[in-house]
Deep mutational scan, measured.
Amino acid sequence: VTTYKLVINGKTLKGETTTKAVDAETAEKAFKQYANDNGVDGVWTYDDATKTFTVTEMV
């Protein structure tokens, strides 16, 4: 189990959260659900070296 981080660069919501998951795919599903629940829709990137997902909403 690995800890993954999500950085949110939203128009109205900004911040970070973490989740523990067995792999990046599982973490991504959890983060996308979290973003969807919070009304964040944007471009996703993932950095495997730092285990960090970033979602950026276009203005």
Score class of each variant (00 low, 15 high):
Gly10Cys: 12
Gly39Gln: 08
Asp48Asn: 08
Val1Gly: 08
Thr19Met: 14
Tyr4Arg: 00
Thr50Ile: 07
Lys14Gly: 06
Thr19Leu: 13
Thr50Lys: 07
Ala35Glu: 01
Glu57Phe: 07
Thr3His: 06
Lys51Gly: 04
Val1Met: 13
Thr56Pro: 01
Phe31Ser: 01
Ala49Phe: 10
Thr26Cys: 06
Val7Thr: 05
Thr45Asp: 08
Trp44His: 00
Val22Cys: 10
Asn9Ser: 10
Val7Pro: 00
Asp48Ala: 10
Asp47Asn: 08
Lys5Leu: 08
Met58Phe: 14
Lys5Cys: 06
Thr45Gly: 06
Val43Asn: 08
Val43Trp: 08
Thr18Cys: 10
Thr52Arg: 03
Lys32Leu: 08
Glu25His: 13
Thr18Arg: 06
Asp23Lys: 04
Asp48Tyr: 05
Thr19Ala: 09
Glu57Asp: 09
Tyr46Gly: 00
Asp47Met: 03
Trp44Asn: 00
Lys20Leu: 15
Glu25Asn: 10
Asn36Arg: 13
Lys32Ala: 05
Thr19Ile: 12
Thr54Ser: 06
Ala24Ile: 12
Ala21Lys: 03
Thr17Met: 13
Thr3Phe: 07
Val7Arg: 07
Ala35Ile: 07
Asp41Lys: 14
Tyr34Ser: 02
Lys29Ser: 08
Asn9Glu: 09
Asn38Ala: 10
Asp37Lys: 09
Lys20Phe: 13
Thr12Glu: 11
Val43Ile: 11
Thr12Trp: 12
Gly39Arg: 06
Gln33Cys: 06
Gly10Glu: 03
Asp48Pro: 11
Lys5Ala: 04
Thr45Ala: 09
Val43Asp: 07
Asn38Met: 09
Asn9Thr: 07
Thr3Gln: 09
Thr50Cys: 04
Asn36Asp: 06
Thr2Ile: 13
Ala21Glu: 03
Thr56Tyr: 09
Asp41Arg: 12
Asp37His: 09
Thr18Phe: 13
Glu25Gly: 10
Met58Val: 13
Val7Leu: 10
Thr52Phe: 02
Ala30Asn: 11
Leu13Thr: 09
Leu13Gly: 08
Lys29Gly: 05
Asn38Ser: 08
Lys14Phe: 12
Asn38His: 15
Asn9Lys: 11
Val22Ile: 14
Thr19Phe: 11
Val59Gly: 15
Asp48Leu: 06
Lys32Tyr: 06
Val40Ala: 03
Val40Cys: 04
Ala30Arg: 05
Gly39Met: 07
Asp37Ala: 14
Lys29His: 08
Glu25Val: 11
Thr17Cys: 12
Gly10Val: 14
Lys14His: 12
Leu13Arg: 08
Glu57Met: 06
Val55Ile: 08
Val7Asn: 04
Lys51Leu: 12
Thr18His: 09
Leu13Lys: 11
Tyr46Leu: 02
Lys14Arg: 13
Lys11Met: 10
Tyr34Cys: 04
Thr2Trp: 14
Asp23Phe: 04
Gly39Leu: 06
Val59Tyr: 12
Val1Trp: 13
Ala21Phe: 05
Asn38Gly: 04
Phe31Val: 02
Gly10His: 06
Thr12Tyr: 14
Glu16Asn: 07
Gly10Asp: 03
Asn36Thr: 15
Thr12Ser: 14
Val59Trp: 11
Ala30His: 14
Tyr34Gly: 01
Leu13Asn: 08
Asp37Pro: 02
Thr18Trp: 11
Glu25Cys: 10
Asn9Phe: 14
Lys32Glu: 03
Glu28Lys: 14
Ala30Tyr: 14
Met58Tyr: 12
Asp23Gly: 04
Met58Ile: 14
Asp48Gly: 06
Thr50Asn: 07
Gly10Ser: 10
Thr17Ile: 15
Asp23Glu: 04
Gln33Ser: 15
Val55Ala: 02
Gly39Val: 03
Glu28Val: 08
Asp23Ile: 03
Thr45Ile: 09
Asp41Asn: 11
Leu13Phe: 14
Glu28Met: 15
Ile8Thr: 03
Val55Pro: 00
Asn38Arg: 13
Thr17Lys: 11
Gly10Ala: 11
Gly42Ile: 02
Thr12His: 15
Asp41Val: 15
Ala21Asn: 03
Phe53Ile: 02
Ala21Gly: 04
Asp41Ser: 15
Ala35Gly: 03
Thr54Ala: 04
Thr26Glu: 10
Asp48Trp: 06
Tyr46Glu: 00
Leu6Gln: 00
Lys5Gly: 03
Lys29Cys: 05
Asp37Leu: 12
